[in-house]
Design a protein around this nucleic acid. Sequence first.
DNA 1: ATCGGTCCGGACCGATCGGTCCCAATACTG
DNA 2: CAGTATTGGGACCGATCGGTCCGGACCGAT
Lengths: 197, 197
Amino acid sequence: MTRRPAPGTRRRILQTAARLFGEQGARAVGMQQIVEETGLGKSVLYREFTGKDDLVKAWVGELHDHAWSQLDSAIARHEGDPARQLLAIVEHAQETARTSDAHGCTFYNTSAEYRDPDHPGRREAVAHLDQLRERLRALAATARATDPGALADMLMLVISGLYANAATLGPSGPVSRSVAAARILIDQHIPAHASAS
Amino acid sequence: MTRRPAPGTRRRILQTAARLFGEQGARAVGMQQIVEETGLGKSVLYREFTGKDDLVKAWVGELHDHAWSQLDSAIARHEGDPARQLLAIVEHAQETARTSDAHGCTFYNTSAEYRDPDHPGRREAVAHLDQLRERLRALAATARATDPGALADMLMLVISGLYANAATLGPSGPVSRSVAAARILIDQHIPAHASAS
DNA sequence: ATCGGTCCGGACCGATCGGTCCCAATACTG
DNA sequence: CAGTATTGGGACCGATCGGTCCGGACCGAT
């Protein structure tokens, strides 16, 4: 071992893959295309990742981490007010869905493109959605919702729907009513609570 | 012109394509695969459809027609009660999303797989969603909703979200709360109205 | 300066993609 | 019944797919 591998290589691949996969969908992007855009050779790509499936999984996984850090900071901004935290999550989702060039939710898009339940990318995506659901449930519980599981699931519907509609009907479509919808659902489930305007 | 073309050919292609596209996603299915499953030759397929894009468009279009006929009959079952009709639409969506092997909403799936806004299949899908939105708005208006556009959009969120969640988190996931969510949103928008249990 | 070893750009692989085309089989016409 | 126009099964096309591998370039130790 006399020569050190370039340090930022993996990250560079991931960034390029993220851009292409995000814009065009994972299935529409070929490995060759990623090779060309990074300027790297194929051998490097296949040393860092075992194959395309692995690259897709890594991409989804990184987005998972990114999403959680964003969500955590959005939640932290309303410490002690769990009802407000629930709304903040939807606000954050609405904001990103409308600005991020309307490609929809990566987690659901990936599930749509790879139907095999054993596909690594799909597993990663489903796992993320499941964790989000659980987090919402926990938040709803501490907010003393009458039925935390129901409220969490209803917010899941709004969040998923918001991304889907942003991707299809544009930023001024139904996505623009998602926060309002979330507010209604939250108020309905938390007795004697009126969310801040 | 001495020989008549086989009559059911186009329909047979469409049915096979619908099954394969629905199960695996349009991008994952090759034309060769459709040829093999139908038993027809490629020349037949390319005489009926100009190419894969055209086949995808026809598939989405047929689902569009099918969806509307189902929706119309669901609506007709509650003539004169527009609020109930809105709920019936969501009920129907929930039912189909949970039973149809959880492949999600074709219209959104197709949009996710084909990002090019000029792709015929995507155009067809977006057009359908837009019509659904407008129909919901009209129904909400005749139901004297305080803000018909808002109610329609919120129901769009629920419907889209319901399909997305059925496809990822399964039939016992958030999709099971979609009718309840819709009921809350409807009641909130229609003064002095309580939807039947 | 020389050498040994590692790295990586890109040629290359078989399979499959969407799409074209040929020709044998077919069924109507005269 | 012979002739002919049309159909449709499938061989074939170049391009591209995901993935492998080789050979020159480069680095570090001696």
